[in-house]
């Protein structure tokens, strides 16, 4: 499965975005704030998704701000760091 679609499905499932469909999430749309409207707890949950599914640990919270910007930035980071 395409990594971006897989990420969208995992976000919807793990973050309980029950009224959102994968096609509603644009690849370059901000995930936090004005975009998908995720909050700080969701950010922690994404850290867990990366750990459980891709064996990626985010050590520096400042780094997460850029990595979690959009589906595009998340996918790029996973492709570069997946073990």
């Amino acid at each position: 499965m395409d990594l971006k679609l897989e990420l969208k499905e995992k976000l919807i499932d793990q973050l309980n975005l029950e009224e959102v469909k994968p096609e509603d999430i644009k690849d370059d749309e901000p995930l936090f704030g004005e975009g998908l409207g995720l909050d700080s707890i969701d950010a922690l949950e994404i850290i867990v998704i990366l750990d459980n599914n891709y064996n990626i640990k985010i050590g520096n919270p400042e780094e997460a701000r850029d990595i979690f910007h959009s589906i595009n930035t998340l996918a790029t980071y996973i492709e570069a760091n997946q073990k």
Partner: peptide, 10 residues
């Protein structure tokens, strides 16, 4: 052995 879910923990 999973990472605990923050969304559940709250």
């Amino acid at each position: 052995g999973k990472a605990a879910s923050p969304a559940n923990f709250v």
